[in-house]
């Protein structure tokens, strides 16, 4: 039996909004560690990894590891029926073919439940080893979102370079080209407004902007984003989910013809 009670239901709503445009169907895995998901987009260019740790739930019961295949668009539709202040409980029976989402409003005078059929998904799980990255940049998530949006009005791809000068985002298109440099800046009022650059080695990689724009749907989950880059690896954009875990997006680079 599975029963997960999340007081801050809005988190789950935001998580679904962050993933549903990138991934259509995915398996949610539930174990003693937490509620997790790993899925690739249909073209296998990007991957999303979600972890909501068991400690972050008010009540977490998972008698045995369970995998639940769901259409993320349908889950998102159901979660739109939950208020932002609602408590969300996810329930499933071992071996059952449905999952139930229950929403309780803060006054506890309205309780809704939605039962959804699970899907049998044949999804591939990739092993992602810990890696040493050439550069790790932490910056305000809203700033990153703004940069991706602004550059995609000019070009389709972005070259992200990290040097001692800072992190540079460059694009080119029919109307011209653009460069945005963010320097390290730790003299800010709040730590989440800082741009912090850790660089072991200069790195420069090219990425498709449409995927980065899709990742920025997670902006409301975290005030900061951490971008990890290595010349031999996909980019990782990590949004921490306060007290619970993270949502990480991996993006394979583009290379010269």
């Amino acid at each position: 039996m599975l029963e997960l009670r999340l007081v801050q239901g809005s988190l789950l709503k935001k998580v679904l909004e962050a993933m549903k445009d990138l991934v259509t169907d995915a398996n949610f895995d539930c174990s003693a560690t937490g509620f997790s998901l790993q899925a690739m987009d249909s073209s296998h260019v990007a991957l999303v990894a979600l972890l909501l740790r068991s400690e972050g739930f008010e009540h977490y019961r998972c008698d045995r590891n369970i995998t639940m295949g769901m259409n993320l668009n349908n889950v998102s539709k159901l979660l739109k029926c939950a208020g932002n202040d609602d408590i969300i409980t996810i329930k499933a029976d071992d071996g059952g073919d449905t999952v139930t989402f229950m929403f309780e409003n803060p006054k506890q005078d309205k309780i809704s439940d939605f039962e959804m059929k699970l899907m049998d998904l044949d999804s591939e799980h990739l092993g992602i080893p810990d890696a040493e990255y050439h550069a790790i940049v932490r910056m305000p998530s809203l700033e990153f979102s703004r940069i991706c949006k602004d550059l995609s009005s000019i070009g389709d791809t972005v070259v992200i370079s990290v040097t001692k000068e800072g992190i540079k985002f460059s694009t080119r298109g029919d109307i011209g080209n653009a460069n945005i440099v963010c320097r390290q800046n730790t003299t800010v009022d709040k730590p989440e407004e800082a741009t912090v650059i850790q660089m072991n080695e200069a790195v420069s990689l090219t990425f498709a902007l449409r995927y980065l724009n899709s990742f920025t749907k997670a902006t409301s989950l975290s005030e900061t984003v951490t971008i990890s880059l290595s010349s031999e690896l996909p980019l990782v954009a990590e949004y921490k989910i306060a007290d619970m875990g993270y949502i990480k997006f991996y993006l394979a680079p583009k290379i010269e013809d």
């Binding site: 073209s43 260019v45 991957l47 990739l126 092993g127 996909p234 394979a252 583009k254 290379i255």
Partner: peptide, 14 residues
Amino acid sequence: SGVQLSITEFYRST
């Protein structure tokens, strides 16, 4: 412009 690599070229199935 350029060739888009796939995630599966970097990480293997478990």
